[in-house]
Write a protein that binds this DNA or RNA. Structure first.
Length: 556
RNA sequence: GCCCCCGUAGCUCAGUGGAUAGAGCACAGGAUUCCUAAUCCUGGAGUCGUAGGUUCGAUUCCUACCGGGGGCACCA
């Protein structure tokens, strides 16, 4: 784990030593800016290492270890920060930080409380995070679930780093898909009434359509049996399905700030307006009765139809209009989360906004790969049109929101995710979400014990904290100090899985410490020092779990 | 055919232009008079898909190929 604050201090010291070496004629300035201070891979190689000597030696054709020895001499006097400095391997200089420096972080972190890990890095930049965006044609599938959790976690991370975040759900309740939905519902309605019916060829076959039809019968009997248009069926289906989607999102505690209706773009003439604007730039032409967007003029492989010969726009056109609105609404950064099956929509939309004079670099797509569900040793195939897909609701029934969120975030978006239902359901040590939550619960238990026994932390005097000298204790301090930089990098990279890995690592360190050392023991001073450690650790777990939307139970 | 993602331990996956590539699961053995054993400790396990290239140094960057997934609509 990177220890950002301390690392920054060390970096300054190394920079000063480098400059001093230049002044004293030990080496030239050639290596300036091209050396690194980083964390070595293996324990026993210090807290941090620098390759400065190797870089200098490379520039000046000298022996790396010889340069390293000179650097060590310069670093050695900084005893306030460094406990030990040594040459290692091909010419690395390994640095061991003073324990007191690590110990001093404890009251600092604890003092920040729930703010520890937060930053103002985003400087209030307006960020739009668009995710889920499922049209109301059926319940959310497991794939949507991954996206919902991913998008929400990204939003949380961005908020934590000082961005002004809007969570947005873009949907369309008009058009062909919805017509088919209405037709499907009517067919089931007629079927349930025992009347002749014809089910649309590409209709929605899920059982939920029957339930909607059943509800219509319960409300209106057979009053709709001679209604030719699909509107009343579509309306009812949309109502029920949207309520269902929102119910599911509520179970995951995901709330959107805004629902943006694609249809409003038509109502306000914004779709037409995009065509006009593109036409003005000579990027639109007619062919075969359709309207084409000349994307080849913008460096893409082929031109695309934006209005079909039937007069209906393709998805690209309103998407471009929608994104132009995002820009017009003044967002500095637009994050679009969607599944890899929609990957093809990206280049055309970006080309569109660029043609309209906006900077496509402000749009960052986060494309997640598919989820495969493993149940009873078998993969469950998913398809929205078929009846046999697993919904997020069913998943939540089985594993609960904490496990669902944690598991969906255990892989980076780029990787396909195998969701092991058996593992997520298991209430045992192999289940990572329990492992991490248990660490928090255990720390709460220690706190309760301390209260029962009347042991109080007292003041965080350096002399008291100096008792924390065990390897496991210093490792925990280092890991905690790395948290803010981790949150920042996870947020800027839009990669919440880093938080999950961090928490698992921190939990492993804590459980290891717990099994080797007692917090509340015979030595009152040591107990108080360790209570400081435990309480601060609990805070980091709570903050970390909160960032990914997983609960931090006080007991389990 | 073209484009995107992935290929790392038996399985699921992290990670990195540099020093001995990691974790969890699975497997084998061990730990509890004591703060929650939902825990911990020990052990084996790898040509980092293959072949070239760039580099002082590549598992990491580039190219080609192989394998898996997704896309290449006047569907979204």
């Amino acid at each position: 784990m990177v220890s950002f604050m301390i690392k920054a201090r060390l970096r300054e010291v190394v920079d000063r030593c480098f400059a001093q070496g230049v002044q004293e004629g030990l080496w030239s300035e050639a290596a300036a800016g091209s050396y690194a201070v980083e964390e070595p891979k293996h324990t026993g190689q210090g807290d941090f290492a620098t390759n400065l000597a190797m870089v200098v030696a490379g520039k000046e054709k000298r022996k790396p270890r010889e340069v390293a020895a000179q650097l060590v001499a310069l670093l050695d006097i900084h005893t306030d920060l460094l406990a030990r400095v040594e040459v290692a391997g091909p010419g690395f200089v390994n640095c061991v930080i003073q324990p007191a420096v690590w110990q001093s972080l404890l009251p600092e972190i604890h003092g920040q409380g729930t703010n520890f890990g937060l930053s103002k890095r985003g400087a209030g930049a307006k960020v739009l995070v668009e995710f889920v965006s499922a049209n109301p044609t059926g319940p959310l599938s497991v794939g949507h679930g991954r996206q919902a959790v991913l998008g929400d976690a990204i939003a949380r991370l961005l908020i934590a780093t000082g961005h002004a975040v809007t969570r947005e759900y873009y949907y369309n309740d008009a058009g062909r898909q919805m017509r088919v939905l209405g037709e499907s519902t009517r067919a089931r309605y007629l079927e349930l009434l025992g009347l002749p019916f014809s089910f649309p060829e590409d209709g929605y076959q899920g059982e939920y359509i029957r339930e909607i039809a059943q509800a219509l019968i319960a409300e209106q009997g057979d009053a709709l049996k001679d209604v030719a248009e699909t509107a009343p069926f579509t309306k009812k289906a949309e109502e029920v399905i949207f309520a269902d989607i929102n119910h599911t999102l509520n179970r995951l505690e995901i709330k959107f700030d805004n629902y943006y209706n694609e249809y409003s773009l038509y109502e306000n003439g914004l779709v037409e307006d995009v065509i006009a604007a593109l036409r003005e730039k000579g990027l639109v032409y007619e062919q075969d009765g359709a309207v084409w967007f000349k994307t080849t003029a913008l460096g893409l492989e082929q031109d695309r139809v934006i209005v079909k010969s039937s007069g209906e726009p393709t998805y690209r056109l309103p998407d471009i209009a929608y994104h132009r609105e995002k820009f017009r609404r003044g967002f500095d950064w637009m994050v679009n989360v969607f599944g890899s099956d929609h990957i093809a929509t990206v280049p055309d939309v970006l080309a569109g906004v660029q043609a309209l004079g906006y900077d496509p670099a402000k749009v960052t797509p986060v494309i997640h790969q598919f989820v495969t569900l493993v149940r009873d040793g078998q993969q469950v195939k998913m398809s929205t049109r078929k009846a046999n897909f697993v919904t997020v609701d069913e998943l939540l029934d089985e594993v609960g929101p904490d496990a669902a969120r944690f598991f969906f975030l255990m892989r980076k978006a780029d990787s396909q995710l195998e969701f092991d239902l058996a593992l997520a359901t298991r209430q045992s040590q192999d289940n990572p979400v329990f492992y991490v939550q248990y660490a928090h619960a255990r720390l709460c238990s220690i706190r309760r014990q301390a209260a029962d026994k009347g042991v109080e932390r007292g003041a965080a005097d350096p002399a008291l904290l100096a008792r924390l000298v065990e390897e496991e204790e210093l490792a925990l301090l280092k890991a905690m100090s790395a948290f803010p930089a981790l949150v920042e990098s996870a947020a800027l990279a839009l990669e919440p899985h880093r938080i999950v890995f961090y928490l698992q690592d921190l939990a492993a360190r804590f459980h290891g410490f717990y099994n080797r050392h007692r917090v509340i023991g015979d030595d009152p001073e040591l107990s108080r020092a360790r209570l400081w450690l435990a309480e601060t650790l609990r805070l980091v777990f709570a903050n970390g779990l909160n960032l990914i939307g997983v609960s931090a139970p006080e007991s389990m």
